[in-house]
Design a protein around this nucleic acid. Structure first.
Lengths: 211, 211
DNA sequence: GGCAAAACAAGCCGATCGTATTGTTTTCGT
DNA sequence: ACGAAAACAATACGATCGGCTTGTTTTGCC
């Protein structure tokens, strides 16, 4: 519909389709078996087209990682601005698991994260971005929550702890195929930590501009 | 020195050397780049010799995984039988991190665990073993600790939680290159959970047979 | 309408992988 | 001591990978 930028729009749409295909392949086949041929077939483009957008496999992977981080449905506590009823600490922490770590998007990212540990090139290309994301997530939590102890640094530590736990839970699923046990751990954890955190803004209730 | 079983001893020694080489390669290069050729070179054996002991790469990997699980320096709370001074809950939990997850052995196993998620064959070959190990670890913790709440099931949940956390911490290291922050999370976690756990055997102190 | 550039397509190439095959040395029962 | 079997070694083979090169179609600007 846009007369100008048609080419550019098409390009970004193709790139997005490729990133989606990479994500799907990472989830189903893992990092090693996510080859450019397979991704091209999955995305419905030719190998040449893929290499036009992403010259190397590494470009493809880093772009997908950044796309995942950007789209991050699993950005911690993004619901901070939502209606009051959904802002209980318990519910928000459960969301970090259900909508955060226990998703295909995170599992795809996990493949890249694990590969980063042994791939210096990948690490140097994504490390900064990842730390920036981590910093942004920390700011979100600091803005949305305060510690019952009064120590504001404790919010960051506890939230990072939550992030570690849910990441570890994804791996735990390899040990235990009982979803109820996983859920039990999560419930116990929430019961343990949520008394230590309190949503901010109890004094300023009406800033959810409905525009 | 044994006149009989010389061949067998040599065989097991070679297999162990190979498993060690696989572990080293997994830590340094990751699962995908741990090829047969590279492992053979690392272990100082020929490709043919390696294939004699482990016909396929998958055999090699599963054997290494089982070897790692068996050797498990990182078996939770293995120090339960140690001297009283080392049996404080805080110290034991810290050990699960320092001697458990934050080791080359666990990082090698992590590579296999992650691969298992997308490799059905590997999953079917190792899943049972892994769940058995998990079960054994649970029994260790149940035998060595009791919950302050009195609910014995809580011991298993909290210890599994601890395991998830330290596994997640390994991944967190990709986000944060600050070791102090990692240590802070671990200290905070221990402070949070250790009051809920109590070493058993306060009433039966003298069963550490020194034979 | 025409032309440069972007987007897309198809195929080739060197390298490496896992496995199979074949040959050589060492160990062990008899 | 000798033949069988285990342990070790070397190499060949088919498949697949990532990257490159070349050709075709589509888009944007004049």
């Amino acid at each position: 519909m846009l007369e100008t930028g048609l080419q550019e729009a098409k390009s970004t749409r193709t790139r997005e389709r490729i990133c989606r295909a990479v994500t799907d392949s990472l989830v189903r086949d893992g990092y090693a078996d996510t080859s450019i041929s397979r991704v091209a077939a999955l995305a419905g483009v030719s190998k040449g087209a893929l290499q036009h957008h992403f010259p190397t496999r590494e470009d493809m992977m880093t772009a997908t990682a950044e796309w995942l981080l950007g789209n991050a449905t699993f950005l911690h506590l993004r619901n901070t601005r939502g209606p009051r009823a959904d802002r209980s600490t318990e519910r928000e922490l459960m969301r970090t698991w259900e909508k955060g770590a226990n998703t295909d998007e995170f599992r795809a990212l996990l493949e890249i994260l694990v590969k980063m540990r042994t791939d210096a090139k990948l690490r140097s290309r994504l490390g900064r971005k990842l730390r920036a994301w981590q910093e942004q997530a920390a700011q979100y939590t600091r803005a949305g929550y305060e510690a019952a102890s009064g120590d504001d640094d404790d919010v960051e530590v506890l939230m990072a702890m939550n992030a570690c736990l849910i990441r570890g839970l994804v791996i735990q699923q390899q040990y235990t195929n009982d979803p109820e046990f996983i859920a039990r751990i999560m419930r116990r954890w929430i019961g343990l930590v949520s008394p230590l955190l309190r949503p901010k803004g109890e004094t300023a209730p009406s800033d959810d501009g409905s525009a």
